[in-house]
Design a protein around this nucleic acid. Structure first.
Lengths: 109, 109
DNA sequence: ACAACTACTTGATCTGACGTAGTACGACAG
DNA sequence: CTGTCGTACTACGTCAGATCAAGTAGTTGT
């Protein structure tokens, strides 16, 4: 299990990726992240919900209430155009970080 | 310039790398990091010094006063055996993080 | 009836990076 | 002989973000 300290800074990226193809809601996002990370990382609920609210505040996502015939009401989140650009930027920053930190990583002797 | 939020979590790794080959001191460590990151990242002094103290507390490094014929006295930091293992672990965690986050990064369309 | 799963919220706490500021020493220019 | 630059730290306060702990609420399975 990868420590959250290592993911910190990329929480937004993981969440945004989950919204690229279609709108989604908290629980589904968390399940997707868990799946894509193959059980190596599990985003805490509070981390996830605070992330989507932060993203909403900055205009990267918008929220709407899903029609629900059953179950508790879900809040869906949809990526905005700005959100897409924001995601692309985050990806680019990630690539740069990989290049940078990579220069500090040596193979164990 | 890469934002500190992206490096957060790898500060210790960068510092430890700078101590792999020989003991060093605060200012030299910061210069080495600046150099290796090719100006893309500059670790703030307060960040660096709080990191070495944290590493000292966990036993990854030990400190000693350098003999100084001139200039202000320097505090040198030396990697311990535990520190070396700690560095190797951080590197391994880094590789895992790269693999994980990489699955959330898509090329811009 | 009760647990388990889904779906989310609130409030408090803690860590770590940062800003600001100051101390301290040497060398060198003017 | 004074000021400024580069070196080498330290102290204090602040803030964002991840977490813990706990609670609310509806649905489904046994």
């Amino acid at each position: 299990m990868i420590s959250a300290d290592f993911i910190r800074g990329y929480v937004d990226l993981l969440v945004l990726e989950s919204l690229l193809d279609q709108p989604s809601y908290g629980y589904a996002i968390s399940k997707r992240i868990e799946e894509l990370s193959r059980g190596q990382y599990e985003m805490k609920e509070t981390t996830l919900y605070s992330a989507v609210r932060r993203l909403e505040k900055t205009g990267a996502v918008t929220s709407f209430q899903g029609t629900h015939s059953q179950g508790r009401a879900r809040t869906y989140y949809r990526l905005t155009e700005f959100g897409r650009r924001f995601y692309d930027e985050k990806c680019e920053e990630w690539r740069q970080t990989v290049a940078l930190v990579g220069r500090f990583v040596r193979d164990p002797h």
